[in-house]
Simulated assay, not measured.
Amino acid sequence: MPRRFLQRYMPKPDTIRKQRSLRFIAPLIADPGLWLLTRRSVANAFSVGVFCAMLPIPFQMVIAALGARVTRCNLALSIGLVWITNPLTMPLIFYGNYWIGTFILGAPVREAPSRISTRWVAEQMHDIMPPLILGSLVTAVILAIVANIGVRLIWRWHVSHHWKRRRLKRRQRREQIEAEFDDRV
């Protein structure tokens, strides 16, 4: 992951502290370690954010912020990644988690009526929740591990690719200087 690319889009801690609506959490986000962009902090932030995004619970952003504080990873990334499950993607993701849970438990998948209502969901909650929670936890753990490993590999590839480009430029510069020197002699 290119650090400069991430820094360009991330909010600055000072701007967040100056906002009136967020002043109450200023002491919690004052730790500079929560704003670092290292391979470890970004990979762990992806793990925390993706894990919290897969959980069918309210206040996912608060849980992600607490997880970022505990694991000392990048706060902004872990909170931002929770929005993987936004109002558009949430039904599909949670249905997929429910389906995985029913597969693991060996339970039948409940067929939804043609019109889903809150009453139907409330009546089916005792049958829906165990597979949904299990499927969400399994998906969250697997995706968090994959995200962490993936970010670390991408970051490592980016750094090695950058070093190879630098080495090639230095070699070309050296060859150009040697060619100019040979022309003078």
Rank of each mutant, 00 (worst) to 15 (best):
P27S: 07
I29E: 05
A30N: 14
A30Q: 13
D31F: 08
P32R: 14
G33R: 14
G33H: 10
L34K: 11
W35E: 12
T38G: 08
R39I: 02
R39M: 09
R39N: 11
R40M: 02
S41N: 13
V42L: 10
F46I: 00
F46P: 01
F46A: 10
V48W: 04
G49S: 10
V50H: 00
V50S: 02
C52Q: 07
M54I: 00
L55A: 09
P56T: 08
P56I: 06
I57T: 14
F59I: 13
Q60T: 08
V62N: 01
I63M: 14
I63F: 14
A65M: 15
R69D: 02
A76W: 07
L77D: 02
I79M: 15
G80E: 02
I84L: 15
T85Y: 10
T85A: 15
T89R: 09
L92F: 15
I93R: 06
I93N: 01
N97W: 01
N97K: 06
T102P: 03
G106S: 08
E111I: 13
A112D: 01
A112H: 10
P113I: 12
P113G: 07
S114V: 12
R115P: 00
I116L: 15
S117L: 03
W120V: 07
A122R: 08
D127W: 13
D127V: 14
I128E: 03
M129Q: 11
M129N: 04
P130L: 03
P130K: 03
P131D: 10
L132I: 09
I133T: 09
G135E: 09
S136F: 00
V138D: 05
A140L: 07
A144F: 04
I145N: 00
I145S: 00
A147I: 00
I149P: 04
V151Y: 11
V151F: 10
R152E: 11
L153V: 14
R156G: 02
W157P: 00
W157E: 00
V159G: 03
